[in-house]
Amino acid sequence: MSGGMIFAGAGAVLFTMGLVGVVLIGPLLRRILAFNVMGSGAFLVLVGLAQRDGGADPVPQAMVLTGIVVAVASTALALALARRLHRLTGRTTLSATDDD
């Protein structure tokens, strides 16, 4: 087993943890955290799996760089929305149904 495979495996578990978190957790900040964990997991799989034979692969590394920037952008937008919602309604969760 190589280092790449270990981190790919960890990435798979992180992704799953994050996915479960995003789906099941109510409070918005924590869901955003879960989303970041999920994304980090996917990044680890991308690089780890590609480098399971040891050699560095610049292609997935560049992709992950792109991905990290996209993730921070999404996180910032999500936080902005969550804070706005809190300011308007005082809520820190999305209600189960709000097609009101």
């Binding site: 610049p58 292609v59 992709m63 792109t66 952008a73 937008l77 902005a80």
Partner: peptide
């Protein structure tokens, strides 16, 4: 990595900067 990021797959990077700008726009718009 820089070669991939800005040359071979520079197009991805171009769009990605767009995504970043877009997120800021969203934050400002909110």
């Amino acid at each position: 990595v820089t070669a991939v990021l800005l040359n071979f797959r520079g197009y991805d990077t171009l769009l990605e900067v767009g995504v970043l700008l877009l997120a800021l726009l969203g934050v400002l718009a909110v």
